[in-house]
């Protein structure tokens, strides 16, 4: 009985399913198939060219015995935690400052200025930071002028500072997307909430913690998840600036995956790293969706 009603309802919606075909045809060809192909090969010893041998979960077992992978995991955890903290503070701070301006014309101008750097390609930003960190670069010159010459160091060549130098790239970390998302959240808060809290004698700072942040939790969660996804998979910065070095001090799983697959001819091992990353990202996404309340609303009925 139930089964036939399901079929019935599928049949009733046949036009909807049919109209989703183009999207899913593309996704199956260019996204699902390559992804599944890669997940499948994580169970193989595979050089990416010809040699292929099924080895079960041995790649994953080896992964956790591999000291390089463990270091990479440690590094990416540091990057992810700091990335999350950064992405939910600085852009939000900028959004709060803009949002609280009385002068609407200035608000509009500032908003635009924050968005302009979007046209600068990411690689140029990385090259710039490379120049800032050079031993004779801006940062060291700046420190010397301030009389802090003892603090100067080769930021990317020093085992103790390289990872933190990478975290600091992009300071003050106001990406236009994150900034506008927060601003949108703040603007959508019902004005009456502020007014009633002022009557209760709340200061602006109290308002931020008791009204703004709880009301834009959905936005915060989105930025949080996107940041986690970006940091966990990312390795562009390493490719351009450090190659994971010096030593393994900036090595991350994404970079190790790339090296294993393309440099070491251990494609199967690389796929295992990718699969692991996928699992971790999925897990973190589910956790943050579950434990920060404000689920996606499935609105609309028919």
């Amino acid at each position: 009985m139930k089964r036939s009603s399901l079929l019935n309802s599928v049949y009733k919606n046949k036009f909807i399913y049919l109209s989703l075909v183009p999207t899913f045809a593309l996704l199956l060809t260019f996204n699902y198939y390559p992804a599944i192909n890669a997940l499948y090969h994580s169970l193989f010893e595979w050089d990416g060219i010809g040699y292929e041998k099924f080895i079960g979960i041995k790649n994953f077992v080896n992964l956790f015995k591999d000291p390089v992978f463990i270091i990479a995991l440690r590094n990416v955890s540091i990057l992810a935690i700091s990335g999350v903290i950064i992405s939910i503070t600085f852009p939000l701070l900028a959004a709060e400052l803009t949002f609280n301006l009385r002068n609407l014309k200035m608000q509009y101008l500032y908003r635009t200025m924050f968005v302009v750097p979007m046209v600068v390609p990411g690689i140029v930003v990385l090259l710039l930071w490379g120049f800032i960190y050079r031993p004779d670069g801006l940062l060291n010159n700046f420190l010397t002028i301030l009389g802090l010459g003892s603090l100067t160091r080769p930021w990317l060549g020093d085992f103790n500072t390289a990872l933190f130098a990478l975290i600091f790239i992009g300071f003050p970390w106001i990406g236009s997307f994150n900034y506008l998302i927060y601003l949108a959240g703040l603007q959508s808060i019902n004005k009456e909430l502020f007014e009633s809290s002022i009557i209760d004698g709340a200061t602006r700072l109290q308002q931020i913690f008791y009204i703004d942040i709880p009301m834009i939790l959905g936005q915060i969660k989105l930025i949080l998840i996107l940041t986690i996804i970006g940091v966990m998979q990312g390795y562009t910065t390493q490719v351009v600036l450090t190659q994971g070095g010096p030593g393994y001090s900036t090595m991350v799983p994404g970079m190790y995956m790339y090296n294993s697959a393309f440099l070491y001819y251990r494609m199967g091992y690389g796929c295992a790293i990718g699969t692991f990353l996928f699992g971790v990202i999925l897990f973190l996404t589910i956790v943050s969706r579950r434990y920060i309340q404000a689920p996606i609303e499935f609105g609309g009925t028919k």
Partner: peptide, 19 residues
Amino acid sequence: TEEAKDKNFKLWQLYIGDQ
């Protein structure tokens, strides 16, 4: 091999850098 070279290079950095 390329793999040994890459991995040993990183160890070399650690050794030369007194790590």
